[in-house]
Design a protein around this nucleic acid. Structure first.
Length: 547
RNA sequence: UGGGCUAUGGCCAAGUGGUUAAGGCACCGGACUUUGACUCCGGGAUCGAUAGUUCGACUCUAUCUAGCCCAGCCA
């Protein structure tokens, strides 16, 4: 599968013109959170662009700010990318290049392209100006090379306190592009780094580090999201002024937003930290680990990303687009099983008391390879509560009702005769009669049933818990503020019902529960109770008319 | 407000001067059905606005409008 896109065109031109032999790309996450669906676009795009153009793809952790980073995220990110099937050639850390970056900074100083600034953070902000007003030069901007060198080495050696000095690139304080107004490229920060431990007390800033990382690795095309477009001039400046040999090219594409879902690592992090969700892998989240736990196949995520293309436009994609590719993906793979979410007892009055029949059923009518199974059928079965109504309301009603005959899927026609109620008037069981001539597969065609409904035998079954997650995970309310109160246990609908006794799933296995959608077995399952997450619903074309 | 980017039906998205303006999702009809699923058939836009260039513009120009991003010693 290929993404047909301007990035493709650019890379092909670079190869045709002889600028590069192949494409080498990278995915550079900061290990400060878990990956989500938005990252999947970046990962899959970078990966496929490289693979489709004879090159390879690196995974590089952009760990230049130790106070935000942690190895648990490193491990989680690796796992998610492996799961997506995007195999990296090299596993790298930006922090492995700290020495080289430091040396490049020295070059900058020697070329009079960087200086040590003693201004405070507040002063720097004031001097920078704003969107309307240009900035003005720092009074320390014209220090001599020698002084800058001494000061910068001093910074590295820990002679100065955190925040007391920074190294800045000397570019143009009057630039309309804020990023070019003498950006800070090194700060003093005494913090333990997960990789370099306590070796460094100065750390490079993204804008300085990133282009160097790309250049060191020989990245040819550095694909990133649109918000870095303004940084491209600075990216190119760094590559040039640091005298890098390889010249990587930054190309931007639009971010992926899902309507009604929390995207953005920091917002998801807020939800996790506040306890609003059970963790980064909460199935209501669109983190890759959450989607995986919910049962979304990695292949479907890839198909989804490919199907969207790589626009520069901004917009929100509806989650239904993802769900559709998930259904397509699972259609032939998932065995179909009967499951009753909200059981209603159906008693077949004219069926022999202790008779049990085993019906042979295809596991997937569209894929014979999945074989068949035997399902039990006896006098008492469970049907979905919503499949029975006292009086057929209109001709659209294709389920059971009093005096109405339907097919119990894979079994017989049954006709409802009588309702059994408790003292409060609630329906607790329905009595019916079956027609032995109508057995499934017998070729009976004398009359048509009023639809067909699924069932689970009442004596041979397993308890199961079904978690139905709200499709809309949450919304932003007032702009970028996650409504964490919308993500609480109430937004999971839990139902207790029955599945067929003869399925023995393992964690992650997916089934299509007849008309109830696709479900996967969750890790919370126990011996007594199987817990299934709804991966996606099936489409339903029955819509009761709103009165 | 300075700079950068974006603008095609409810959503996503092809299209780069001449096509009846692809396709997918969603939605609405209908057929079929041992899943109201699947499958199949049918249904909708003049392309942010305006003014130009041209025999001809979604595609070129100008102006305008709307949205997103940038004023971290975050990435």
């Amino acid at each position: 599968m290929e993404i047909n896109h301007f990035i493709n065109t650019i890379i092909e031109e670079d190869i045709r013109s002889g600028k590069h032999e192949k494409a080498i790309t990278r995915f550079p996450p900061e290990p400060n959170g878990f990956l989500h669906l938005g990252h999947a676009r970046a990962i899959i795009t970078n990966y496929s662009m490289a693979i489709n153009h004879g090159g390879y793809f690196n995974l590089r952790f952009d760990d230049t700010n130790p106070i935000k980073e942690d190895t648990v995220f490193v491990d989680a990110i690796k796992k998610d990318i492996e799961w997506l099937g995007c195999h990296w050639k090299n596993l790298l850390f930006a922090s492995d290049y700290f020495e080289e970056m430091y040396n490049r900074a020295i070059i900058l100083i020697k070329n009079k392209s960087a200086f040590v600034d003693d201004l405070t953070a507040e002063e720097i902000r004031d001097y920078r100006g704003d969107l309307k007003n240009t900035g003005k030069n720092s009074p320390y901007r014209n220090r001599s090379i020698e002084e800058n060198l001494e000061l910068f080495i001093g910074m590295k050696e820990g002679k100065y306190s955190d925040g007391s000095r920074v190294l800045r690139a000397k570019i143009d304080m009057t630039s309309p592009n804020m990023n070019m107004r003498d950006p800070v490229i090194y700060r003093i920060q005494r913090a333990y780094h997960h990789n370099t431990k306590d070796k460094w007390c100065i750390y490079p800033m993204y804008d300085f580090a990133h282009p160097i990382e790309d250049a060191i690795e020989g990245i040819t095309h550095s694909l990133c999201s649109l918000e870095f477009e303004d940084h491209r001039p600075l990216y190119d400046w760094v590559v040039k002024h640091c005298e890098m040999e390889n010249i990587p090219r930054q190309i931007e594409f639009g971010k992926l937003y899902i309507a009604g879902a929390v995207t953005g690592k920091r917002y998801i992090k807020e939800l996790v930290d506040s306890g609003a969700v059970v963790g980064w892998d909460d199935p209501r989240l669109i983190t890759l680990s959450g989607l995986r736990r919910r049962g979304i196949p990695a292949e479907a995520i890839r198909d989804f990303v490919y199907s969207l293309g790589l626009p520069k436009s901004q917009g929100e994609t509806e989650i239904d687009m993802l769900y559709q590719v998930v259904r397509d993906n699972l259609k032939l793979k998932a065995p179909r099983t009967n499951a009753i979410l909200e059981p209603l007892k159906l008693i077949i009055d004219n069926y022999p008391e202790d008779k049990v029949e085993y019906l042979e059923v295809e596991n997937n009518r569209e894929n014979e390879e999945l074989g068949t199974r035997q399902i039990p059928f006896s006098k008492c079965v469970y049907i979905e509560r919503e499949d029975f109504i006292e009086r057929k309301p209109n001709k659209k009603w294709k389920r059971l009702a009093l005096d109405i005959e339907v097919r119990l899927m894979h079994a017989y026609f049954v006709k409802a005769n009588l309702i059994e109620r408790d003292e409060k008037g609630n329906i607790i069981a329905v009595h019916c009669t079956y027609d032995p001539n109508t057995k499934s597969g017998s070729g009976f065609k004398d009359r048509k049933p009023n639809g067909n409904i699924h069932f689970v035998d009442a004596t041979y079954n397993k308890n199961a818990e079904f978690r139905l997650f709200n499709d809309l995970i949450t919304d932003f309310g007032d702009k970028n503020v996650p409504f964490s109160e919308k993500i609480n246990p109430d937004s999971i609908i839990i139902k207790n019902g029955f599945v067929e006794k003869n399925i023995n799933p393992t964690i992650g296995d997916r089934f299509q529960f007849t008309r109830n959608g696709y479900y996967s077995l969750d890790k919370d399952s126990t011996e007594e109770t199987l817990v299934f997450n709804r991966v996606v619903s099936l489409k339903s074309s029955y819509k009761p008319k709103a009165k």
